[in-house]
Amino acid sequence: MAITRDEVARLARLSRMSLSDAELDALAPQLDEIVSAVARVAEVAAADTAPSSHAVPLTNVFRVDVVQPSLPAEEALAAAPAAQDGRFRVPRILDADE
Protein backbone atom coordinates (compact mmCIF):
# COMPACT_ATOMS: atom_id res chain seq x y z
CA MET A 1 0.00 0.00 0.00
CA ALA A 2 1.70 3.16 -1.20
CA ILE A 3 0.79 6.57 0.18
CA THR A 4 -0.17 8.79 -2.70
CA ARG A 5 0.46 12.46 -3.29
CA ASP A 6 -3.30 13.07 -3.02
CA GLU A 7 -3.40 11.44 0.43
CA VAL A 8 -0.54 13.66 1.59
CA ALA A 9 -2.38 16.73 0.23
CA ARG A 10 -5.54 15.66 2.11
CA LEU A 11 -3.58 15.18 5.34
CA ALA A 12 -2.00 18.60 4.84
CA ARG A 13 -5.43 20.20 4.42
CA LEU A 14 -6.78 18.43 7.53
CA SER A 15 -3.82 19.66 9.58
CA ARG A 16 -4.15 23.13 8.04
CA MET A 17 -0.68 22.98 6.51
CA SER A 18 0.18 24.66 3.26
CA LEU A 19 2.54 22.46 1.23
CA SER A 20 4.03 23.21 -2.15
CA ASP A 21 3.86 20.73 -5.04
CA ALA A 22 7.54 19.87 -4.49
CA GLU A 23 6.88 19.19 -0.78
CA LEU A 24 3.91 16.96 -1.61
CA ASP A 25 6.01 15.02 -4.12
CA ALA A 26 8.85 14.60 -1.58
CA LEU A 27 6.66 13.70 1.41
CA ALA A 28 4.61 10.95 -0.23
CA PRO A 29 7.48 8.43 -0.57
CA GLN A 30 8.89 9.43 2.85
CA LEU A 31 5.57 8.83 4.61
CA ASP A 32 5.16 5.57 2.70
CA GLU A 33 8.56 4.41 3.99
CA ILE A 34 7.62 5.33 7.58
CA VAL A 35 4.30 3.45 7.38
CA SER A 36 6.09 0.42 5.90
CA ALA A 37 8.65 0.44 8.73
CA VAL A 38 5.90 0.55 11.36
CA ALA A 39 4.11 -2.32 9.61
CA ARG A 40 7.32 -4.41 9.70
CA VAL A 41 7.64 -3.79 13.46
CA ALA A 42 4.02 -4.85 13.96
CA GLU A 43 4.75 -8.12 12.11
CA VAL A 44 7.68 -8.91 14.42
CA ALA A 45 5.88 -8.15 17.66
CA ALA A 46 4.51 -11.42 18.99
CA ALA A 47 2.15 -12.20 21.85
CA ASP A 48 4.82 -14.30 23.57
CA THR A 49 7.36 -11.44 23.60
CA ALA A 50 7.73 -9.94 27.06
CA PRO A 51 7.23 -6.15 27.20
CA SER A 52 10.28 -4.10 28.05
CA SER A 53 10.83 -0.48 28.93
CA HIS A 54 14.30 -0.24 27.37
CA ALA A 55 15.85 -1.71 24.26
CA VAL A 56 19.21 -2.20 25.98
CA PRO A 57 19.96 -3.16 29.58
CA LEU A 58 20.42 -0.28 32.00
CA THR A 59 23.64 0.09 33.93
CA ASN A 60 24.00 2.04 37.15
CA VAL A 61 26.48 4.85 36.47
CA PHE A 62 26.52 6.23 40.00
CA ARG A 63 29.44 5.77 42.37
CA VAL A 64 29.17 3.63 45.46
CA ASP A 65 27.74 5.55 48.41
CA VAL A 66 30.55 5.65 50.99
CA VAL A 67 30.22 7.39 54.35
CA GLN A 68 32.90 10.08 54.70
CA PRO A 69 33.51 12.76 57.30
CA SER A 70 31.55 15.91 56.56
CA LEU A 71 32.25 19.59 57.12
CA PRO A 72 31.92 20.53 60.81
CA ALA A 73 28.76 22.56 61.53
CA GLU A 74 30.78 25.45 62.98
CA GLU A 75 32.84 25.72 59.79
CA ALA A 76 29.74 25.62 57.57
CA LEU A 77 27.97 28.24 59.66
CA ALA A 78 31.06 30.49 59.65
CA ALA A 79 30.41 31.35 55.99
CA ALA A 80 26.67 31.91 56.48
CA PRO A 81 25.28 35.46 56.38
CA ALA A 82 23.23 34.65 59.52
CA ALA A 83 23.18 31.77 62.00
CA GLN A 84 21.20 31.07 65.15
CA ASP A 85 21.23 28.12 67.58
CA GLY A 86 23.64 26.14 65.41
CA ARG A 87 21.49 26.50 62.26
CA PHE A 88 21.32 28.73 59.20
CA ARG A 89 19.00 31.68 59.77
CA VAL A 90 16.82 32.51 56.76
CA PRO A 91 14.00 35.00 56.20
CA ARG A 92 10.49 33.76 57.10
CA ILE A 93 8.48 32.85 54.01
CA LEU A 94 5.33 31.49 55.69
CA ASP A 95 3.02 33.09 58.21
CA ALA A 96 3.21 31.77 61.77
CA ASP A 97 -0.27 30.15 61.50
CA GLU A 98 0.62 28.09 58.39
Rank of each mutant, 00 (worst) to 15 (best):
S15W: 08
R40D: 14
A50T: 09
A73P: 09
Q84G: 07
A73C: 06
L94K: 11
T4C: 02
V56H: 11
M17V: 07
F62L: 14
I3P: 07
L11R: 15
V35Y: 10
T49P: 00
Q68V: 12
A78Y: 01
A22Y: 04
V61D: 11
A26E: 12
P29A: 01
A45G: 02
P29M: 00
F88E: 01
P91V: 10
A79H: 07
A28Q: 02
A26N: 06
I34E: 07
P57G: 03
L11F: 10
A28M: 01
R10S: 15
R40K: 15
P72C: 01
A28E: 03
A73Q: 04
D65K: 10
L11W: 15
T59R: 13
Q68I: 07
V35H: 05
L27I: 07
A46W: 04
A9E: 11
L19A: 03
V44Q: 15
A22R: 10
P57F: 06
D97A: 13
Q30K: 14
E23P: 01
E98N: 08
A83Q: 11
T49F: 14
Q68Y: 00
V56W: 13
D25E: 15
F88G: 02
V44N: 10
A26V: 08
V8A: 03
R63H: 08
L27G: 04
V90K: 06
A26P: 02
A83W: 01
I93Y: 13
E33V: 10
A22C: 00
Q84F: 12
D6T: 15
Q30A: 15
D85K: 01
L94C: 09
A47P: 00
R63F: 05
V41E: 12
L27A: 10
F88N: 01
